[in-house]
């Protein structure tokens, strides 16, 4: 075991932070630590917060942290904001809503840039969740990138999904659409002190109540109202999250979700590698891009990569 991992396991924050960096950059020491931590992980309840940009995801996370800390949990938070497709830089503003929560003991907050991953979550985010779980954080909140209608990747990565919506963003028709309006275990109407809140509540409720299908896992989604800036509805929301957690455990789904998360993590890493293979192939062929030669290069580079992975283990 590396010295860094040892210190991280004792709860030393700077060591945890440095270890997470090594993990997110797939550094060999980080991967070794992740392997160790993954053997100890599997008990944290992972909650995903998703929704459109500006719905109040970060603000509600701040309020959820308070409530979890009050209940004596160790809380890990991973927040993702977009990377620039042009410069690869990122402007991450989620922490601004946390104010002094990060100075609380037992709360560890980490911002992540999406680094080209689409769909709301990234390989890095899932690796950090796995690590925080193994380090003993028993409630983990992951904030997706501001999501659109098809950003449903978060489904197989977390135990409990709360989709945040805000009043005034659409009528019943929007609520009935496929995609993000199907994945929630909870639909949270945030900013519920706005005049259109009741209409949003009713149309979301209709979208759920009118379904005759079997709900995912047999859990009928709950529509809740919150005013995150004032902490209204947060205690009740955490009560319901805990209820969902017990439900998943009683059905044996809690464990299954962790398996799904690990599969997803590997899938995202493989996909990222494919992107790199393609980039390299394009580089090799850049004089004249023709489909067949490009495919041949991809095949060759991919073969080299697989051989390399084989040698490493």
């Amino acid at each position: 075991m590396s010295e860094l991992l040892e210190r991280a396991l004792k709860g030393e924050e700077i060591a945890i932070a440095k270890l997470l960096t090594k993990i997110e950059y797939v550094d060999p020491e980080g991967m070794k630590a992740l392997e160790y931590l993954a053997e100890r992980s599997g008990s944290a309840h992972v909650v995903g917060i998703t929704g459109i940009p500006g719905a109040g995801k970060s603000t509600i996370i701040g309020a959820l942290i308070d409530e979890y800390v009050r209940r004596n949990h160790r809380v890990g938070v991973v927040m993702i904001d977009p990377s620039s497709p042009f410069t690869k830089g990122s402007f991450m503003g989620n922490r601004i809503r946390m104010q002094d929560r990060s100075t609380l003991d037992n709360v560890f907050i980490r911002s992540l840039a999406s680094r080209g991953h689409l769909g709301g979550v990234s390989a890095e985010a899932l690796m950090l969740i796995e690590a925080l779980d193994g380090l003993g954080y028993d409630r983990i909140i992951v904030e997706t990138v501001g999501a659109g209608q098809t950003d449903t990747e978060v489904v197989s990565s977390v135990h409990t999904i709360a989709v945040l919506t805000v009043p005034g963003t659409g009528d019943e028709i929007q609520a009935l659409k496929a995609g993000i309006m199907e994945i929630g275990d909870f639909y949270v109407i945030n900013k519920a002190d706005k005049p259109e809140a009741e209409a949003s509540y009713i149309s979301t409720k209709f979208a759920i109540d009118s379904a005759e299908v079997n709900f995912r896992d047999g859990w009928k989604p709950i529509v809740a109202k919150t005013v995150a800036t004032k902490g209204e509805g947060i205690k009740e929301l955490v009560d319901m999250f805990e209820e969902h957690r017990s439900f998943l455990e009683s059905k044996g789904i809690f464990r299954q979700r962790i398996v799904d998360r690990r599969v997803k993590m590997v899938e995202l890493i493989v996909r990222r590698n494919i992107d790199q293979v393609l980039q390299k192939a394009v580089e090799e062929n850049k004089k004249d891009i023709l489909m067949i030669p490009l495919l041949k290069s991809v095949e060759k580079i991919q073969g080299d990569l697989i051989a390399k992975i084989g040698r490493a283990h």
Binding site: S83, G89, S90, F91, M92, G93, R95, A113
Partner: peptide, 12 residues
């Protein structure tokens, strides 16, 4: 700094 390719955490 974002435009220069860095990952910036703006804390406000």
């Amino acid at each position: 700094l974002k435009d220069a390719g860095m990952e910036v955490v703006y804390t406000g």
